[in-house]
């Protein structure tokens, strides 16, 4: 009886998995189909001929490598900024006692509830005045000023480290910066990895940042560069799909490799 129920459950899970994966599979298949098959026989499932040539054509028809380089600069810069600023601030909010701390922390949580619409336009004006328009720095620099969500996540983690460790280090004459760098950070690797990965994914996917701040093709990251490709190559589905696969694959690989860090972060905080 139990075994029968288990089989049904297993079948149901298999069916739903299929439904979720089918669109991805169709994308993958379309990326190796000949162009004439996609227009002439759009509902056919399997490619008439497997054309890996599509990938090379996609790489040549959009400046993929250039966009990829920009994406990497954006991701690495943003991850560095986030890790440095958020861990410092989280240390201040969790391992140190100072007057005004609770009030400041409450204000920080409050900023999370503010929709980005309210701050978007003045930020744009500010960054333009600072001469950052059309520079990747306009998107990277704010990450060096901390992000409430990541600060909150790291603070929760730092709070779980026993206070006695810090006390002992202080008695040994270690400065606060020393405790932060030599003790707290090494103990917090899992949380830091989670934050780094979230920010990496966010920067890789970011569309509105480049849309607002970048005007020069030379500086586009992949997410925004691909959009340009959509409008000019609307009838070249095979190339679009090949480019999309190349853009998506790093995220899928990252997730499969580091699934634990991801799911821990999502369930800990409620969102990505």
């Amino acid at each position: 009886m139990n075994n029968v129920a288990g089989k049904w459950k297993w079948m149901a899970l298999l069916c739903v998995s299929g439904m979720f994966l089918l669109p991805l599979l169709l994308m993958l298949l379309a990326s190796v189909k000949p162009a004439e098959q996609l227009t002439g026989d759009p509902y056919s499932l399997l490619p008439d001929r497997v054309l890996f040539q599509n990938y090379r054509d996609a790489l040549e028809s959009i400046p993929y490598v250039k966009y990829l380089a920009n994406s990497i600069v954006l991701c690495v810069g943003s991850v560095a900024g986030t890790l440095i600023s958020c861990s410092l601030v989280a240390y201040g909010f969790s391992r140190l006692k100072w007057r005004g701390r609770n009030l400041m922390f409450a204000i920080m949580i409050g900023t999370m509830l503010l929709p980005w619409h309210v701050t978007m336009i003045p930020r744009f004006v500010l960054f333009s005045e600072l001469g950052l328009y059309n520079h990747l720095a306009a998107i990277i620099l704010p990450t060096f000023l901390g992000d409430a969500f990541y600060i909150f996540l790291l603070r929760q983690f730092f709070l779980s480290i026993p206070e006695e460790i810090s006390e002992a280090a202080r008695l040994d004459g270690l400065s606060e910066l020393g405790i932060y760098w030599r003790i707290i950070l090494p103990l917090s690797k899992p949380a830091l990895i989670t934050v780094a990965m979230f920010q990496f994914v966010a920067s890789w996917n970011d569309f509105s940042g480049p849309l607002l701040y970048l005007s020069d093709h030379e500086k586009f990251p992949l997410a925004y560069g691909l959009e340009q490709f959509v409008s000019s190559y609307a009838d070249q589905t095979h190339l679009l799909m090949a480019a999309s696969v190349m853009f998506t694959l790093p995220m899928i690989i990252l997730f499969v490799v580091a699934q634990k860090s991801f799911t821990r972060g999502i369930t800990m905080t409620g969102s990505k």
Binding site: S85, V89, G92, W98, M104, V118, T119, L126
Partner: peptide, 30 residues
């Protein structure tokens, strides 16, 4: 405790700068 009092503000200073530039100013301006 005396050290913590001012080093606390120092540690959160990146966020304080962000608060001023990315939230307070935009909030008032908009």
């Amino acid at each position: 405790r005396g050290i913590q009092r001012w080093s606390g503000w120092l540690f959160v200073s990146p966020w304080l700068l962000g608060l001023a530039l990315l939230f307070v100013y935009p909030f008032v301006a908009s």
